[in-house]
Design a protein around this nucleic acid. Sequence first.
DNA 1: TTCATGAAGTTAAACGTTTAACTTCGCGGG
DNA 2: CCCGCGAAGTTAAACGTTTAACTTCATGAA
Lengths: 331, 331
Amino acid sequence: MATLRDVARRAGVSIATVSYVLNGTRPVSPEVEARVWEAVAALQYRPNRLARGLRRKRTHVLGLIVPDNANPFFAEIARGLEDISFAHDYSLILCNSDGDPSKEQRYLGVLIEQQVDGIALVSASATPAHLTILRERGIPFVVVDRDLLGLEADCVLADNFQGGYLATWHLLNRGHRRIACITGPSDLTPSADRVRGYQKAMEEAGIEPLEVWVYRGDFRAESGYHAARFFLSLPLPIRPTAIFACNDLMAIGAMRAIGEAGLSIPQDIALVGFDDIVLASYVIPPLTTVAQPTYEMGRLAGELLLRRIQARGRPPARHLLPVRLIVRHSA
Amino acid sequence: MATLRDVARRAGVSIATVSYVLNGTRPVSPEVEARVWEAVAALQYRPNRLARGLRRKRTHVLGLIVPDNANPFFAEIARGLEDISFAHDYSLILCNSDGDPSKEQRYLGVLIEQQVDGIALVSASATPAHLTILRERGIPFVVVDRDLLGLEADCVLADNFQGGYLATWHLLNRGHRRIACITGPSDLTPSADRVRGYQKAMEEAGIEPLEVWVYRGDFRAESGYHAARFFLSLPLPIRPTAIFACNDLMAIGAMRAIGEAGLSIPQDIALVGFDDIVLASYVIPPLTTVAQPTYEMGRLAGELLLRRIQARGRPPARHLLPVRLIVRHSA
DNA sequence: TTCATGAAGTTAAACGTTTAACTTCGCGGG
DNA sequence: CCCGCGAAGTTAAACGTTTAACTTCATGAA
């Protein structure tokens, strides 16, 4: 409402002087400075960031595109990114792509029009083709969680391969040999990497996993339930004694199937999940799982983004964040 | 990069004409229109929303302040609000207050400076004092989830009272008489209303709840665990046979304590939660709980906000959304 | 006394739109 | 033949900042 002009009038100076006082961009005499601050307070003046952004060509706004903020994993990434943004006086525009590349594309357009200073995204598609629009316009961006093949850009990933390896290694260590795996949608790199970790561990143990031990799920609890029922239906000699589920939701679905079959965990079937969602520690028995530094991924993405906004020329950095095996009672 | 000016030059017309074509605000001859669109496409022109907002005094941006986006409840509200925003070509700026009134205040300032068209907030404090800043500037806003005493404004709430009543009524219906309640922090209206619902149901059944049956928790699983242990330590004649927990997290904490005590649910102790978080259906036994239309609350908040942006004069509307009792196996 | 210097202020252009007000021109009615 | 009118275009101001360039004036050195 009150503008620079109003403040200037009340303080009896030019608008330029007010601007200099507000931004501290040039020395101003003490008396004038005091008058300006008085006027600012009296008028409850607040700078208009649109006008500022228009002139400076910097908006102090970032964009974040995730598949679905209602998914706790992405929500926590968003939280981490927002914390970093706030700490640096940036605002964050949140976008939900629903994993739909065309919706993601529309959002990219909106963010560009909104003149955001940078974009973080958990991409909806597996190739970087749709990011050329950012490249062309020289907009800083960072990709999170999901890798894009052959993309030269800043990137924050959890070490999913290592996670799958650790989980499987733990089961092997407990003496299991027939270990099954419930995967996610295989075109997404996080899931694929976890499965590769599983395979690597099995291979190192000199075990060739049977094809029927690998069940393709969709990251939802329901599919874990079906997977476990399927495993339990296998003839005894090839029935798995342990299951590695590529996320906790599916692991919990599996728990239910195992419980319904009258079997107990971990005596009859051992179980390891992935993600360490809040309730992993509250199911019975508490779930052994692999924790990702989700919040940290959001923070790091923010830091990389801000750094790139400062210095665009730097070579892109790939960050592979360590995961932790959390041993509880399910394996 | 490309501006109206560039498009105008390429199409051989004035920038005004280009603007009219883009916005369809005035008739333009077919040939000219075609040339303009050609130029727009060739130059990959995208309007600068800052400039547009500055001129129009409408940014098509909304703000949302929640305590913590990493909390699935708020994350889902955010999701609902964002969906509505996107559908109406609005963008959403996300802010996390951590329940800290001063941080909330800072965010309000930022959003104002950002010239958002409206603000939705899950307020950090119980009184509407800090919202005067919005009032003074005539910025449309809507409060969600938590009521503010004596506030005249649009408002979206779940019927928490009814939820507490339903949950308790269900337990009474199953024959329970000694029913305990695990509350949340009592200064927040959602929790307080649930407790009032509990009390009302008990009263209607002619039961005066003992003071020791009401345990003050903090909405986290740990506090539910402690609450249940406390209840189980009571002498048999006054030991509760059923527990109503004001959220699912605390209910699940209670489950754990009950399990550890070697008791079974619902035979020895019945349990009802609140929220219907995803995993409520995956714990063992599946949790009977009260579901709030969380996503719907976000959507409705968005709709109210947009409506108010259109027509500021309308009297404020209070929406009390119905909750549902979901009967599973814990009670 | 003169003049370069620097401190502290002002002026005005620029950022990219929108939109009120103005121009131009062809056409039809009187 | 003149005039008014409407269609279709242009001009320029405005939105609220930032900032380069300019002005003014006191100071101190030569």
